[in-house]
Design a protein around this nucleic acid. Sequence first.
DNA 1: GATGAATGAGACTTCATTCAT
DNA 2: GATGAATGAAGTCTCATTCAT
Lengths: 192, 192, 192, 192
Amino acid sequence: MTTPLRKDAARNWDRIVAVARDLVDQGTPLQLNDVARRAGLGVGTVYRHFATPEALLETVATSCLEALAAHGEQALADPDPWRSLEGFLTRTVEAQVTDASLAPVTAASADTLPRTTELKAVLRSTGNTLLDRAREAGAVRPDLASADLVPLMCGIAHAVTVLGGTPADRIGTAHRYLSTLLEGLRAVPRTA
Amino acid sequence: MTTPLRKDAARNWDRIVAVARDLVDQGTPLQLNDVARRAGLGVGTVYRHFATPEALLETVATSCLEALAAHGEQALADPDPWRSLEGFLTRTVEAQVTDASLAPVTAASADTLPRTTELKAVLRSTGNTLLDRAREAGAVRPDLASADLVPLMCGIAHAVTVLGGTPADRIGTAHRYLSTLLEGLRAVPRTA
Amino acid sequence: MTTPLRKDAARNWDRIVAVARDLVDQGTPLQLNDVARRAGLGVGTVYRHFATPEALLETVATSCLEALAAHGEQALADPDPWRSLEGFLTRTVEAQVTDASLAPVTAASADTLPRTTELKAVLRSTGNTLLDRAREAGAVRPDLASADLVPLMCGIAHAVTVLGGTPADRIGTAHRYLSTLLEGLRAVPRTA
Amino acid sequence: MTTPLRKDAARNWDRIVAVARDLVDQGTPLQLNDVARRAGLGVGTVYRHFATPEALLETVATSCLEALAAHGEQALADPDPWRSLEGFLTRTVEAQVTDASLAPVTAASADTLPRTTELKAVLRSTGNTLLDRAREAGAVRPDLASADLVPLMCGIAHAVTVLGGTPADRIGTAHRYLSTLLEGLRAVPRTA
DNA sequence: GATGAATGAGACTTCATTCAT
DNA sequence: GATGAATGAAGTCTCATTCAT
């Protein structure tokens, strides 16, 4: 499909993405000029590879999205409707909390790269299927739409960020918040 | 305490805040120069009143925070431990979803105006009290710390934003998400 | 001539000049707004008394110029043509090096206050007389014009400033530089 | 050492420096925006080349400092201890009086460009050597430290500026003031 | 393809001065 | 007279993007 990159171009691509990954991990906003400088490349080179900061950010996020999608496959193979949903959502939130590139990409309504759109679709579809299965099995309250999954996961991740703490803390917090929410999702509305 | 503003200064102050409120409602980031232009005032005037965009944003948020604090008073007066907590959190989330000035101010760890710090402290304290009461009454799962309230409300608000929709939709969504979460908060962890 | 100031106006005048004196001593540039704030007065008040920073600076310098003028009187009374000139110039340079308000006022070609113009004229005239006397007495090389006195004194003061050091150092340096220059002024051009 | 500039960058660099030179000659303070406008270049371009007005000013001064340093070489080669010192100082003062970029750069205690620091060190060292030679030869009064040379030259230049006059006048004045001072420097303190 | 210089809109801020109260 | 709020020109500087080399 795509012409494979020339060897030097591929090296530059890698460098750029590596630098961007570092910046994202440090919480520094991605500025293409800045990335170029840190990568020891010309600005033009960076722009050739990534037309906008968003494109670069999505690229940084891609591998993580792919890992999530792969996990989604496994979850779909798990016959337990609740356990598979819970596992998938747990992974999703862990990823968002661990990798700063994920939150903005997930929350964005428009993507820059086709690959991003593709992966997000896969993940949405996986979530839908898992949710439908769980709902049919009566494991989940019926008023939860599949369109709610992504927002709720983003919300959890955001809550974790607001609370703050070390990276390790954050994973713990994420589990706590997610389990609380899941309790609510599972709940059959109680009768008075 | 504070010297009352001169009449013209007060008029300008009002204009500035009104313009800022509009901008916030439109989702436009607050830029003091821009505010000055739209208010038909000199830049210097705006800077005299608000040294930084944050100060202006907090000012815009103040009345809303005050309304929440006032509601908090009422909630504290309500003897029902669960209903009062639920009511307070509902108002909080409604406010965050309705008023774009609130989310950044609430999530910020450092404030610019003393008044903001004060109001945030009041709200935190109200939340704590309500939560403690509910916990003691056995209405809430014991592993929820009072420090979690603000993050969770921010998370809900964020989830609502990610889902999007009209302002009216958003309030509905907020209620739905909050009630789900509250279900989880209330739940006595179920036994298998 | 001038209507005497009302008592409160006089008090304000004094305050302003005192603040300005401090600022000058610290080497802070005179800004009327700044002066007003430090004096606890409105800007308008300061502007009423001193239309420009220059006017204020000249006012600050006035007492020092008056002291120099007074010394000039004494110098004129001294019958020794060389000693009187030397004493007058020494005082002048000491003053410039000691009081930061003096250099700019002395070097300026145009004055703001009539009183400044008056005092500068007196000092120039004193210098002229002393120099003429010394020249006639053969104590000074003939190619030194009286118009050179002010520039040379400013030059010495500037040299002292460039070398830097503590206020005490500066007076010593001033004496050293001045004595060197005077040696040159006195010199009958030597024959080979 | 330094990568040579690209052709267009070099052209812009030259333009900027030329404009700055004109401004300096007119006595206009250097403002980078202003320079950009006059040079027909974007502000960013000027900022890329010269991070601060001081850097630009020092660049403008550089060629003159280099010429002085070159003259210093020749002076060191001259075996006559007095004549070589006199020649060097004469050139220095002429330069300061002729080129308005020099005075501020010379008087500044901190430099922006390494090149400036380098050249100033060379000139100071040349001055020291010439002065030491002259002192050892008994041609100069012993209480003159080498640290005094720069301040005294700045002082002379300042005196010339205060007197004012056309550029041609100023050179004449500079010679006159310098020769007076040198007379004082040379003088063996006279006995009464 | 790679480079990095150039661009210039626009954000932020200061300050001398005016003028309404 | 005194006050200090208002003014806005002008300065500094950043940064996303383009384009000549």
